[in-house]
Amino acid sequence: MVAFVEVTPETICRQRGTGKTTEIEILPDLMELAQQTCGELPMVIHGVELSIGSAHGWNDAYLRMLDRFQQAWPFVWHSEHLGFQTISGDEGATLQVGVPLPMPPTKEAASLVASRSDAIQRRYGVPFLLENPAHYFSDLPTDPEIEDDIGLLHSITKGSSCQLLLDLHNLYCNAVNHKFDPFKAIDRMPLDQVIEIHVAGGSWRDGFWMDAHDGRVPEQVWEMLDYVLPKVPQVAGVVFELLEEHAVNLGPEAIAEELKQAWKIWNVHRAA
């Protein structure tokens, strides 16, 4: 039922120090446990701490950790979230915002992320994918040439070797919260660059559908998967995301059902 695993390396790491002396240290016992659990399955990386879009600089400590991680456990590809979560503080300090935030659809943002994506691709020698984020802001600064979130993805992928992790639940969140048609949005995506797809569940909070990874995949997200799979010639896998603390509540049977549903749709379109 599981063809490959996706690892978020930060979950088996600890941060040491602060500011410019920060290091992210891989915990050997957790690394060993993760490797034992995954066995011989192919593994891909899905990072959360890079902050690839931070104008003041990305997270060097994360990349140093990933260098060591790759030596210990090579990965097939590497993905990150398109966004930023750090800003500059006094005297060059880096401040965490505490939540991931979206990039504005501007030329400057596209250019910054494209050049950094190329640098990452060169550094690791495996495909680098960016994930379209869920966000709750309806009015971000925009350049007319870029227009919106999807225009930003086009601009980044055209301007770099970067490819895409299409998170269907993130797209669904944005469609629900910003009131647009997710199927039309899919049609506007750079689908020829999609290598991986995420599906997940969410929940309502304060009038917004939140990308909470706390339950089963909404029916419309399955419909989106069914819709998009014939249109993504390079896609190599689908991942069901669920936060650890919610896995217990959902239970193994429900998780297995979600995986079976993903396989069912995958096999309809990709079995050949």
Partner: peptide, 16 residues
């Protein structure tokens, strides 16, 4: 608006 100003502004509004 320059990217750094946007990010610093939004980040500060959320942090502070």
């Amino acid at each position: 608006m320059a990217l750094i100003e946007f990010q610093t502004g939004l980040g500060r509004l959320l942090r502070e």
